[in-house]
Design a protein around this nucleic acid. Structure first.
Lengths: 330, 330
DNA sequence: CTGTTAGCGCCTTCAC
DNA sequence: GTGAAGGCGCTAACAG
């Protein structure tokens, strides 16, 4: 199908191309009659404005890039949903990249973002990212960057996250208040910042409340989590802290299974997006790490940055993490 | 930061801009000395090729659009993952839109895709889409469109899907072979094609195997599914068919709960992406509807279309759906 | 109110 | 091998 241009319309309408452009863009200078006439012709020609040309001219794309380390069913779908809400409302488009948790791929994506002149970048770092050179490059290029979840440990970057130390601390505090002392903690990859912080909070609470941490571990697979959980249960653990939904997905069935044969009233507490806990009959208490809300706030922060470009200050936004449980009040 | 252009480089290198362009693109006509000199200058200037200009000139974007009806933790994350694998390998970029299951939004997204000259579209229709005018428009514009999962019922469109009728049929056949006769089926929204087809397959098997379908339903919420399941269990159902992971997520806990108090060896069979069943101790048998593979095949089909543009034929690719179970063989 | 002109950055002819 | 020139489609600035 031959794509018609403003020029084609201008010839048929016997006016100048710029007049057509103005009419199509509802410029107030153009008379309504002419506007209607031109729009009619455009319609007849199946005219579709060439946004590539417009983007080129304006040197902007109204596109937001999201870079995440992985596509799992946990957390990130909620984040994408949140970001999408804001981005759509602002009439921008969302481009999703995933780094497969490899810093090289992440760098390439950032490079592609710069090449494509994306308006802004929202990113959760891969666990293998050592430096932030690629990020700094984008920022120097004038592209605002917002971090969420896995963020740089130093200041000077726009960030939306929860207080990971505090979240873990609150989780353990909950166990304490349930009169529990023998606990175990199950964590994710030891390299990433959120794991470190959650461990810190865990230890802090354990010390402060004089609890007995019978073990902390970094399992490598679902089965591994399941087995480790069973071990802890055999050791008479009374409370298990899961740092994520991914871990919870293996801990809960292990607990349920153990309960079939053994008497235990072990309590599970988790940092969770708030969906998975409701998939179980087991009582799962969780610190709500609301992915959708994180996404919304990150996107909003990005658009704030887009608004006043010259602002060189950076912000750190901390998301609240209320304590919840999946047990119905009824 | 001032963005440097080919022209800037050409001035410093004392050559013509076109020479710079050629050197940067490794054109064989340019001597190696000059190439190196020019590349060095480009490097020094932090030159970043303006892809907007390049896109504009080539009138293409190397971007694939994905349009899905919703962002849930079920199925779609796997599909995105699969698509992304192929798209990344081909050096394209992925743009994700979601329609919130509203046909108007879907149309707008398609329009945006046309405006932005995306190279291709992969889409799962919203349940409210009545006609395909918006799709046809994109196709007429020369943009290849691949459907997956929720696809048009008529021929003439490129589609990657499972045989929904057959998948449901196989599920019920499995129950039959387990000597079960009293069954129930729990389905999603009655409007969408995959629900209709799965119901068809369900009924076909029930008739053929002379089973007793004590009920089929279209619940509206997690709790609703849970309660309905409990009802069926009380009525002495022996097998429950869940048409999706979303439904499974409520059925399984209901079954587990019921088993605590009542003797039953009800069998669960599901059409599943293959992740959720492993989150339970209950035996969950499933017809594997592999989202990642669907995504890969859809993307591959799209690139085939991109290869030979003049091909006006359309393809229907049926994904295999093997029977599996979450119970370890050990 | 509408026309004229010019240029965004790149690449591809066509010359030499 | 390299230079010169032109144009992709759109829009803003400047005229009238």
């Amino acid at each position: 199908m031959k794509k018609s241009t403003i020029k084609d319309i201008s010839i048929l309408a016997q006016v100048n191309p710029s007049t057509v452009s103005r009419a199509l863009n509802n410029h107030p200078d153009i008379s309504n009659d002419l506007k209607n006439k031109i729009k009619k012709i455009a319609e007849d020609l199946n005219y579709v404005p060439n946004k590539l040309a417009a983007n080129f001219r304006s040197n902007s794309t109204k596109t937001i890039a999201l870079i995440i380390p992985e596509f799992t069913m946990f957390f990130f779908p909620s984040v994408i949903k949140g970001i999408n809400k804001v981005v759509t409302k602002m009439n921008y488009q969302l481009m999703v990249f995933h780094s497969n948790d490899e810093s090289d791929i992440e760098s390439n994506h950032i490079k592609a973002c710069i090449d494509n002149r994306v308006s802004g970048i929202i990113i959760s770092l891969s666990s293998t990212s050592k430096d932030l050179n690629h990020i700094d490059k984008a920022i120097r290029f004038g592209i605002p960057v917002i971090f969420f979840d896995k963020a740089p440990s130093m200041n000077g970057y726009n960030t939306v996250k929860i207080n990971d130390i505090n979240a873990a601390y609150k989780a353990i505090k909950f166990l304490k208040e349930a009169q529990i002392t023998r606990i175990a903690g199950i964590f994710g990859h030891p390299n990433i910042s959120i794991t470190k912080d959650r461990i810190t909070g865990f230890h802090k609470a354990v010390l402060e409340y004089k609890m007995e941490a019978i073990g902390i571990c970094h399992p490598t697979s679902w089965q591994n989590i399941y087995d480790l959980t069973t071990d802890y249960l055999k050791q008479g653990v009374e409370g298990i802290f899961c740092m994520s939904d991914e871990i919870l997905s293996a801990v809960t069935p292990a607990v349920a299974k153990y309960k079939e044969k053994n008497a235990t009233n072990v309590k599970i507490i988790c940092i969770s997006d708030g969906q998975l806990p409701y998939f179980y009959n087991e009582e799962v208490n969780f610190i709500h790490h609301d992915g959708e809300w994180v996404g919304i706030r990150a996107a909003e922060m990005l658009f704030e940055r887009l608004q006043d470009e010259n602002s060189r200050s950076t912000k750190m936004h901390i998301i609240e993490t209320p304590l919840k449980t999946n047990q119905q009040s009824s």
